[in-house]
Simulated scan of single mutants.
Amino acid sequence: MKVREACIKDAERIAIVHVDSWKTTYKGIISESYLSSLSVEKRTKNWLWTFKNLNAHEKIFVAEDREGNIIGFSNGGRSRSDEFKHDGELYAIYLLRDYQRLGIGTMLFNSVVESLKDNGYSSMMLWVLRDNPSVTFYKLQGGQTFGQKSISIGGYSLVELAIGWDSI
C-alpha cells in the first residue's frame, strides 16, 4: 500500500471510491434514496472541477493497493471557516470498507497533516457527521470535539461535529 499526491487523471477513480464509501459508510445514516442517487459520473465532474480549482496549499492524496488501484483518498488545505481558530482543515478522507483498519486511513490522515505543516499551518479541524463511525478514528488521532451544526442531506436534518487539533 502506498499514499501519493493525486493528479487530475485520478478523478474518476477517486469518484468511484467516494460514491462507494458514501454508500457503505452512511447506510442507515443518510436516506437510502439519496445514497442510491449518487453517481460516479457526477462525482467525477465534481473532482475534475476540484482539481482545476485547487487553492494555494490544497492537496489531494490517494492510497493505492499493490496493483495500483485507488482504494482511498484524503484532501485538505486552508480552513474554510473563519469562525474557528484552526487554520487548516481536513476536507475529506474516505477509504473502501475492505481496506479499513489496516493503517491506511492513518497514512491518508497524516499526508494531509504533513502537507498542512509544510505550508505553515499549525492547527487543523474537520467536519464529520455525528453518527459516522469514523468519529472514533478522529478521536484516536487526538482530535477533540469543539462544536456542531445542523445540515441537510437528502431532505433530512443531520448533525455534523467539528473536531479539531490545536497543534499539528
Rank of each mutant, 00 (worst) to 15 (best):
V62P: 02
I60F: 05
L90D: 06
T50E: 15
L38Y: 01
S37T: 01
S74M: 07
I104N: 04
V128E: 06
G88A: 08
R43L: 01
E64R: 07
E114D: 13
R43Q: 08
N53T: 03
E160C: 08
K85A: 14
F51K: 05
I60N: 02
Y121N: 04
E83T: 13
D82Y: 13
Y26R: 01
S36M: 07
G77K: 05
N55T: 11
E83G: 08
Y99S: 04
L54E: 03
L129V: 10
R97F: 11
D131K: 12
E64F: 04
E41H: 03
L38A: 01
P133R: 04
D98C: 02
S33C: 13
S74G: 08
L102Y: 11
V113M: 11
S115L: 10
Q144A: 15
S36L: 11
G105L: 00
G28C: 00
W127G: 01
G142L: 10
G68N: 12
D87G: 09
L96T: 06
G72M: 03
N110P: 08
I93L: 13
Q148D: 15
M124G: 09
R66H: 14
S33W: 06
L116P: 05
G68Q: 10
G143W: 08
M107C: 13
I71K: 06
S33Y: 07
N46D: 15
Q100G: 02
L35S: 00
E83M: 13
E32T: 12
H86Q: 14
E64S: 03
M125T: 10
E41G: 00
E32K: 14
V135H: 04
T44A: 05
S81A: 15
L96A: 01
R66L: 12
K139A: 10
R78T: 07
L116C: 07
S79G: 09
L90N: 10
A63C: 04
I30M: 02
L140P: 05
N69T: 06
K52S: 15
L108W: 09
E58A: 04
E32Y: 08
K117W: 09
S123C: 09
G142M: 07
S157M: 10
K85C: 13
L129G: 06
W47C: 03
E160G: 04
E32D: 12
D82L: 15
E67L: 14
E32V: 07
H57T: 12
D98V: 02
Q144C: 15
A56E: 07
L90W: 10
G154H: 02
S39T: 12
V135P: 05
G154C: 00
S74T: 03
N55K: 15
G105W: 00
S31Y: 08
G76L: 01
Y121P: 11
G28F: 01
V62M: 02
G105H: 00
M125E: 14
L38S: 03
R130D: 14
S123M: 11
F84E: 09
L95H: 00
K45D: 12
M124L: 10
G76R: 03
Q141C: 14
L126H: 05
V135F: 00
